[in-house]
């Protein structure tokens, strides 16, 4: 190409880039701009989570029925083992007749957090095709997966509603507390999913390890037995409060408090709403910043 001398000829690459407003490729955007980009992709996030939800059971013959059947079967198994064989129903606030609502709420709420972590670990690692092909803020992926789990939980809540009514709970004003409780848990799960998405992108081995960690968390949080009654004679009261202050226990207790008539604040950890808000903010903010810090590295591998 025999072009006449050009005014740009003497410039260094950096000067040339500055002159024409070129930016360093793949650089991480500042936090506020990142949030703005994420907001612009909100339709993508929504469409992605809906698509994943539907694809989940696309190979099963019963299809979407499994959305409701899976949590119901889960609750049935725990009822069989803990409710009938091990008789853990003692100590449920209000008496034995509250055990099934107690169990169903616990299982569904814990599953929401559990699945958020599990899908978070694979959020980036399992979608490398998408990550390498197209540019979008990567936080879209873990957020979409948590949204998918929220939608799944809403299906489960329909089952939950039927169970509550069948076991003699009457709808009351306190049922409205479901919404703030869910909002806090969603924020918490989102943060958790982003933390594990970054960890899982660097160390895929976590996908093997996490089920065991999560199972331990489940047994330590009082999903199928009331923590207070189980621990009352074995450990001092402050230790019970400590266990009951773990986020999974807090979100389950808030939901049980909202939905089961006989629950009072005396039955759950002290300052439950403050605790819930604290966990949500700590996990949500830390998780988001932690994920954003590695934004430019997710396409690697």
């Amino acid at each position: 190409m025999q072009a006449p001398p050009h005014p740009d000829d003497g410039l260094t690459p950096a000067e040339l880039a500055a002159k024409y407003g070129l930016s360093v490729s793949g650089a991480r955007p500042p936090l506020l701009q990142y949030i703005r980009q994420l907001w612009q992709r909100r339709h993508f996030i929504g469409a992605f989570s809906r698509a994943k939800l539907q694809a989940q059971y696309s190979q099963a013959k019963l299809g979407q029925i499994w959305q409701v059947a899976t949590p119901l079967l889960n609750a049935a198994v725990y009822f069989l083992i803990f409710g009938i064989i091990m008789e853990a129903r003692e100590g449920v606030p209000g008496g034995d007749h509250n055990y099934v609502p107690f169990l169903v709420i616990g299982v569904f709420i814990f599953t929401f957090s559990q699945q958020s972590v599990l899908s978070g670990v694979r959020a980036v690692a399992a979608n490398q095709g998408l990550v390498r092909a197209l540019h979008f803020p990567r936080a879209s992926l873990p957020i979409a997966f948590v949204l998918q789990q929220l939608q799944q939980l809403l299906y489960s809540m329909v089952v939950m509603l039927v169970v509550l009514l069948a076991f003699g709970q009457r709808p009351g004003l306190s049922w409205l507390l479901v919404f703030p409780a869910l909002a806090l848990q969603f924020l918490f799960n989102g943060g958790l999913a982003m933390i594990f998405a970054r960890l899982g992108a660097g160390t895929p081995d976590l996908a093997q390890l996490m089920p065991f960690v999560l199972r331990t968390w489940m047994y330590a949080s009082g999903v199928m037995f009331p923590l207070h009654a189980m621990l009352a004679e074995k450990v001092p009261p402050w230790a019970i409060d400590l266990v009951a202050a773990n986020p999974a226990a807090v979100f389950m207790d808030l939901m049980r408090f909202a939905l089961i008539d006989d629950y009072t604040y005396a039955d759950i950890a002290p300052y439950p709403w403050l605790l819930g808000l604290g966990w949500a903010l700590v996990a949500g903010v830390f998780g988001f910043v932690y994920f954003w810090k590695a934004e430019e590295r997710y396409g690697r591998g």
């Binding site: 690459p13 793949g26 994943k52 694809a55 990550v131 092909a133």
Partner: peptide
């Protein structure tokens, strides 16, 4: 494309380059 940070040196681009490869589908299940 900004998917692989260089060890040394820099890549400057105008806007966001898009890389089109053939080895992976977008989302296989969908």
């Amino acid at each position: 494309a900004g998917l692989l940070p260089p060890e040394r040196g820099k890549v400057y681009t105008d806007g966001q380059p898009s890389l089109l490869g053939v080895n992976a589908a977008l989302l296989n299940d969908l």
